[in-house]
């Protein structure tokens, strides 16, 4: 997709390009980008070397982070600056911003690359942004403290979770209206469709469960709960959810339980738990699904999980309170 830039940003890029020789860039390596909520920065992690190679200063309280489909731009919700910043992945410079509405936390882009759906945590709404013109197309009221955003594989359904209303709100793409609200357990965080679109999974941080929702009937089919020997039930707080491309396996990050649950996604049964860093929230696969990376908010690192072996093989130090993570497609 194309991201429009301001004139100033274009000039900035020209300036940067001139200085390129001085700045070795990790453009060729497999790269992960991590938003550090407490450091107002993005850590750039070289996944061949397995270490942080650059740190990009961004706006205040960076949380949601995403790459555009072509991998050329990194989008970051700078929540306390009420904006989404655009970072050029070649130069690692901020080249523009999007009118996100107040306190953007997370967002989602359809496969077409446009428009962008943003959850505005303080304003109980979802903002729809036309990326090329950077104009707000719609503001959709949902519940209290909108958080997770998901788009169905066919692009026709947008889902937003609200942390205090405790619902998954189904928004029709065409009409931009809320068509259904599904009550889930307390403090829903992340919503994720299976790749085949057959199920929507929603994690409830304080409920300690993942709700498996039928996206056609708008009904909870089953609830997955977790039981880890030696841990209080209250310490198990599901947040991030990722499915392998074949939808056979799901990984769920369990927050202060410091573990990622491995789930047979067909039966919704928990198979095992992997010990990672402290307060694990968000996760991202490498494009080949060889590795799953997790952000560990309290230990200021990311864990690298070998997906085939189901083993945690490495911790990589990043900035303070890592929140979100995305991996470059190349």
């Amino acid at each position: 997709m194309q991201v429009a830039m301001t004139d100033a940003a274009v000039r900035l890029i020209a300036t940067i390009a001139a200085a390129w020789a001085l700045a070795p860039l990790p453009a060729l390596a497999l790269t992960a980008y991590v938003s550090n909520e407490r450091d107002n920065s993005i850590s750039v992690v070289d996944l061949d070397a397995m270490k942080t190679v650059r740190t990009i200063a961004v706006g205040q309280r960076p949380r949601g982070i995403m790459l555009t489909a072509d991998g050329t731009s990194l989008l970051v919700c700078a929540s306390d600056d009420d904006t989404i910043q655009i970072i050029d992945t070649r130069t690692l410079q901020i080249v523009g911003d999007l009118p996100s509405g107040p306190d953007p936390e997370t967002f989602a882009l359809p496969a077409t690359g446009n428009p962008l759906f943003v959850s505005n945590e303080n304003d109980n709404r979802v903002t729809v942004i036309d990326v090329p013109t950077r104009k707000v197309l719609a503001e959709i009221p949902t519940g209290v403290e909108p958080e997770g955003m998901a788009i169905s594989p066919d692009g026709q359904t947008i889902v937003n979770t609200s942390e205090t209303t405790n619902m998954a709100h189904f928004i029709d793409y065409a009409t931009r209206k809320v068509v259904a609200n599904v009550l889930v357990d307390p403090r829903p965080r992340v919503a994720q469709f299976k790749h085949d679109g057959s199920e929507l999974w929603v994690s409830s941080e304080l409920g300690g469960t993942v709700s498996v929702i039928d996206p056609v009937k708008h009904a909870v089919k089953t609830r997955i709960s977790f039981d880890i020997r030696g841990l209080r039930a209250e310490a198990i707080q599901p947040v991030g959810i990722r499915f392998t491309k074949d939808d056979a396996t799901a990984f769920v990050a369990l927050g202060p339980a410091n573990r990622v649950a491995v789930i047979d996604a067909r039966t919704a049964k928990v198979a095992s738990y992997l010990l990672v860093g402290q307060r694990v929230w968000q996760m991202a696969f490498t494009p080949d699904e060889k590795y799953l990376l997790t952000t560990n908010g309290l230990s200021n690192d990311i864990s690298v999980i070998d997906v085939a072996a189901l083993k945690v093989i490495k911790s990589i130090q990043v900035g303070r309170m890592p929140w979100g993570i995305v991996v470059s497609p190349q």
């Binding site: 519940g143 209290v144 609200s162 205090t164 209303t165 405790n166 609200n181």
Partner: peptide, 10 residues
């Protein structure tokens, strides 16, 4: 306000 935001949906 929070109750009413949720209540509006129900």
């Amino acid at each position: 306000d929070d109750n009413n935001t949720t209540g509006r949906l129900l």
